[in-house]
């Protein structure tokens, strides 16, 4: 798997809410070889502060050599990134990590919570392209409010799966957590579950799947310095008592292999 450091041109900035943005970057080498679930490290400034790159899952790769990031402003790095303008250049490094293992022979449930929705669009697109017919597959999207979920529903539906949404405040879809949606849908037999979202949600997905003997792949977050296995900063406990590294062993893991510290 090749990795590239590209000086990407920002081609589009979409603002979905006060804090949620989607940016489109032209970086053909990375976009040309990225796989769903992989991530990139982005420099949000050319100055020394903030110093480190920020990891972002790849939201979508478009056919024209561009890729998209979907993110929420949570700190200085994401704040700077939200202020870029089309035409600006930013350094992007990737694709990094191990993505989702696609099994297009089985029906799939895709579960995204909050910014965990980000990598699922790329995943659903690739999965449906391989599988060709995605009518039985289900996408569950959860967010705090309408602005976090509603703008993305069409982007998922275009590939064929059914999309069900929930929001914490009930402003869009069903009120409640996305894990509650999961409890109430009819699961296709012998399905695979792909998840990304906050840790408590991923832990709940893991437990849900274990009870039903369903394969569960989840993408987790971590603070990172290098993103490529050099600094060993992004350790997290695995179930076997060792540490695993999110950047090179993940960010996608079998839920069964992780220890949940919550």
């Amino acid at each position: 798997m090749s990795q590239y450091q590209e000086n990407a041109t920002v081609t589009r900035v979409e603002q979905f809410s006060a804090t949620n943005y989607r940016i489109t970057l032209n970086c053909p080498e990375i976009a040309g070889c990225a796989e769903p679930g992989q991530f990139v490290m982005v420099r949000t400034t050319t100055s020394k502060d903030p110093l480190l790159r920020r990891p972002f899952s790849i939201h979508q790769c478009l056919g024209d050599g561009s890729l998209q990031l979907y993110f929420k402003v949570v700190g200085r790095g994401t704040d700077l990134l939200s202020k870029v303008s089309p035409g600006e250049k930013i350094s992007v490094f990737g694709p990094l990590g191990r993505g989702y293992r696609l099994n297009s022979t089985k029906p799939a449930i895709f579960v995204g919570g909050g910014m965990g929705i980000a990598p699922l669009l790329f995943l659903v697109k690739e999965y449906c392209r391989l599988k060709k017919e995605c009518g039985e597959d289900i996408v569950l999207l959860g967010g705090r409010d309408k602005s976090e979920v509603a703008p993305l529903v069409d982007d998922f539906e275009v590939y064929g799966p059914s999309v069900v949404a929930s929001t914490d405040d009930g402003s869009f879809g069903q009120q409640g957590f996305v894990t509650e949606l999961l409890q109430n849908i009819a699961l296709p037999p012998s399905c695979v579950l792909y998840g990304c979202g906050p840790e408590p949600m991923l832990k709940a997905l893991g437990a849900f799947c274990r009870d039903r003997n369903i394969e569960c792949q989840v993408s987790v977050e971590s603070v990172m310095a290098c993103g490529m296995g050099a600094c060993l900063g992004c350790s997290r406990p695995a179930k076997d008592g060792t540490y695993t590294h999110v950047c090179v062993h993940g960010p996608v893991f079998d839920a069964e292999k992780l220890a949940w510290n919550i």
Binding site: L52, C234, P237
Partner: peptide, 23 residues
């Protein structure tokens, strides 16, 4: 060596802190 428990790194002004623990 297995190294230290996470979090092992933190960004600071123009720098970073690490406590990898010699993994």
């Amino acid at each position: 060596r297995e190294g230290n428990p996470p979090p092992r790194i933190a960004e600071t002004s123009c720098g970073m802190l690490n406590a990898i623990g010699l993994q």
